[in-house]
Design a protein around this nucleic acid. Structure first.
Lengths: 115, 115
DNA sequence: CGTGTATATAAGCATATGCTTATATGGTAA
DNA sequence: TTACCATATAAGCATATGCTTATATACACG
């Protein structure tokens, strides 16, 4: 079991700045449990589709997430080969679980449309 | 040894946003090793005194650091009683050491003036 | 093929951020 | 007290951010 390399300040600041937004941080936490498509995030965050797309783009631009088309939808997932992935996952592991956001939607009958 | 409580998303996002700036992140990392005064940061970051003061203020406003006058200077240190201190310290622990910033200054004869 | 659905992108705007310069504050010390 | 030093605050400005609305793209599928 090899010790992880320390994260350099610049990389860390870039990551933290990106995650320093409640929407993006919650997105990443949710992505840790399962892949999501844009429409799912739109439903969960009750925000416009472009707003969600723009958040995802930022995450994608730095390489934190990747996309994959499945039928009509594009699913996003965390890139496990991201350079500082351990730093990111450790951070996410310390956050309160957010699955309730998904199950609440289902309970309301607003089941995520694209799954 | 009690398990730490998970950090809620909102608090985490606030912290990460604050630390998502290379200057403030480095400040916090340095403060983990020893208290610093404003003039020390000014020398290390080669930035104006107001710029440094304004960064410190943000850290102070959320309760991450506290101040303490020692003679002519005001020294800043990490508040160990900060609510999410464990989250913050864990994060800082994963960053590359920044002590070189201090020793380099000393090596150049630009010894920190206020120590 | 054409149509619909999911998503991305562009442009515009209001607010936030991080600096600058100028000035205020507050304690030290002659 | 007066002058000085470290630091804080205020005001102004350029850039960044995150939304909005409008529109483009890109598949899927009848």
């Amino acid at each position: 079991m090899s010790e992880r390399q320390p994260t350099d300040i610049k990389s860390a600041a870039t990551i933290l700045k990106l995650l320093g937004d409640p929407t993006r941080l919650t997105m990443m936490k949710l992505l840790q449990s399962h892949d999501c498509c844009v429409c799912e995030f739109v439903a969960i965050f009750n925000r416009s589709q472009p707003a969600i797309s723009q958040h995802i783009r930022k995450l994608k631009d730095v390489g934190l997430v990747k996309e994959e088309r499945r039928g009509q939808w594009i699913f996003y997932s965390i890139r496990q080969d991201y350079e500082e992935i351990a730093f990111v996952l450790d951070l996410l592991d310390q956050l309160a679980d957010q699955q309730a956001l998904v199950t609440d939607l289902e309970a309301q009958g607003l089941r995520i449309s694209c799954t």
